Amino acid sequence: MASTTSGDVLPTGCRIFTSVPDIFFLPEFVIGGLVWILVASTRVVPDNPLGWVMFVSVFCFVFTTLWFFIFICGANQSSVWPSLDVGYHFVAVVFYLSASVDLAYITFLWGQVSFLSAADLKTFRLDIAAVVMSFVATLLYFLHAIFSAIRWKRS
């Protein structure tokens, strides 16, 4: 009789494109990259909250890329990787949620200005797009974290 458990702890190679939590890697790349690009294309005023948004988007983009290559290369086969996968994605959710709220607040404040010049209106619209993409990225990381936690619990 065949065994019901596989020898692999996590999928490797091209199998990550067919497993449920890992299929979120590509949308996380695209949406996280859009947040990065949209915030970088505007004036960073005020510095502190938007600097945090830039840090979070770059940090998550770089570490998701690293995580993706670790999974592709098959270096994720020890028993500690499922818990690291869950931990990283929950940290990314907390980071992105805080950055999304900061960005939404700053964008709200931009919208309260009674007169916006053409350049300010462009910045405002880019910030609105960045807010939407940031919350979508938060949702993607949250779904990845939940499905990774389910996989971790089963392993």
Rank of each mutant, 00 (worst) to 15 (best):
M1I: 11
T4H: 15
T5K: 15
S6K: 06
G7H: 10
P11L: 12
T12C: 11
C14V: 10
I16Y: 04
F17R: 00
F17Y: 12
F24M: 12
P27M: 09
E28L: 07
F29T: 04
V30A: 11
V30C: 04
I31N: 02
G33K: 04
L34Y: 09
W36S: 09
W36K: 05
T42Q: 07
R43W: 06
P46R: 05
D47M: 09
N48T: 10
W52Y: 13
W52F: 15
M54Q: 13
F59C: 03
C60Q: 06
F61M: 09
F61Q: 07
F63D: 06
T64I: 06
T65L: 12
T65I: 03
T65C: 07
F68H: 09
F69D: 03
F69K: 05
I70R: 01
I70P: 05
I72F: 10
C73R: 12
G74P: 04
N76H: 04
N76S: 15
Q77H: 03
S79Y: 11
V80T: 14
W81E: 13
W81D: 07
P82A: 13
V86N: 03
V91A: 13
V91S: 11
V93P: 03
V94Y: 08
F95G: 06
A99E: 02
A99M: 11
A99N: 01
S100C: 10
D102S: 14
D102Y: 11
A104Q: 06
Y105W: 10
T107N: 10
F108L: 08
W110F: 15
W110M: 12
Q112N: 10
V113G: 08
A118R: 07
A119G: 00
K122W: 10
K122D: 15
K122V: 08
R125G: 11
L126G: 00
I128F: 01
A129H: 06
V131S: 09
V132R: 01
M133L: 09
S134G: 12
F135V: 13
V136W: 03
A137C: 06
L139F: 15
L140T: 02
F142P: 01
F142G: 12
H144V: 04
A145W: 01
A145P: 01
A149Y: 11
R151T: 14
